[in-house]
Design a protein around this nucleic acid. Sequence first.
DNA 1: TTAAAACTGCAACATTATTGCACTTTTTGC
DNA 2: GCAAAAAGTGCAATAATGTTGCAGTTTTAA
Lengths: 141, 141
Amino acid sequence: MVNNDLKAKAEKILKTAGFNSTKAQIFILQELLKAGKPLSREELAARLGEKCPDKVTVYRIMERFCAGNLVHKVYLSNRAWNYELAHHCDEKQCHPHFTCNNCGETFCLTGLFLPMVKGLKKGFVVQRQQVRIEGLCPACS
Amino acid sequence: MVNNDLKAKAEKILKTAGFNSTKAQIFILQELLKAGKPLSREELAARLGEKCPDKVTVYRIMERFCAGNLVHKVYLSNRAWNYELAHHCDEKQCHPHFTCNNCGETFCLTGLFLPMVKGLKKGFVVQRQQVRIEGLCPACS
DNA sequence: TTAAAACTGCAACATTATTGCACTTTTTGC
DNA sequence: GCAAAAAGTGCAATAATGTTGCAGTTTTAA
Ligand SMILES: [Mn+2]
Ligand SMILES: [Mn+2]
Ligand SMILES: [Zn+2]
Ligand SMILES: [Zn+2]
């Protein structure tokens, strides 16, 4: 069954990354896997419905996942933290994200990496580079 | 006098961009010119002190400036809108911004442009590209 | 099996931004 | 310059999003 596969996958990822297999963490990780794009706390809740843990728990889980580098925060124009699995990101660079100025939808541009920025002044140590693009999506252009 | 120059400059920019020369708009524009980096509403207020208009007015002015493409919003990790003058940005690309993971300071990497992303699927129209970098600043590395 | 460690939910609170509306300032047309 | 219109402003209330403290529960590990 596909759902069992997903759950098994989530549990495996948790274990590998050193996290406990709690119900809340499994639900959230499964949903991030399904989504394949950044989700705000609210979008996550809408998708999980009944199964969604309390918002405090969600934020705390995301914080732990970020600390463990399982998840990245993405900063978009929607006035909320947005979380996505880090598994499609390079060590130092996440794939770019495209947000439509008309409908507000955000798309992952998986596979489209830009070169890392070059020529920083002495002393700057780059840990991560993120690219945010805005424009019109196919449905709106 | 340098201050008068700055005020004159602000007024000229406003006029050119089709904005009225109100006290609030002049103060804010002067401060954005001085800052030369993105400011949150709160940072702006700290800099302007007494002269700072009500926060509602600040937000509304920034909204107008953004609509007139005089100012850009920059999305950083600080849970606030950040505004900066658009005058060091290309038509389609702002210069990258570097935020230190240790002290939280943000730096403009003026002059360091990346190539525009290439290879988007049909139908995507790019209007602006922004690059956000995190890492350690010279003082913290 | 049980004690320790980790996690969760609820309520209260904090921070940041927005809305409505009455008042003021600035611009415009004479 | 002057009056009317247009644009901008401030205050209070409210909304949206995220955080803290703490008691109780679940998970892990011995
Ligand atoms: Mn993505
Ligand atoms: Mn800048
Ligand atoms: Zn769209
Ligand atoms: Zn620093």
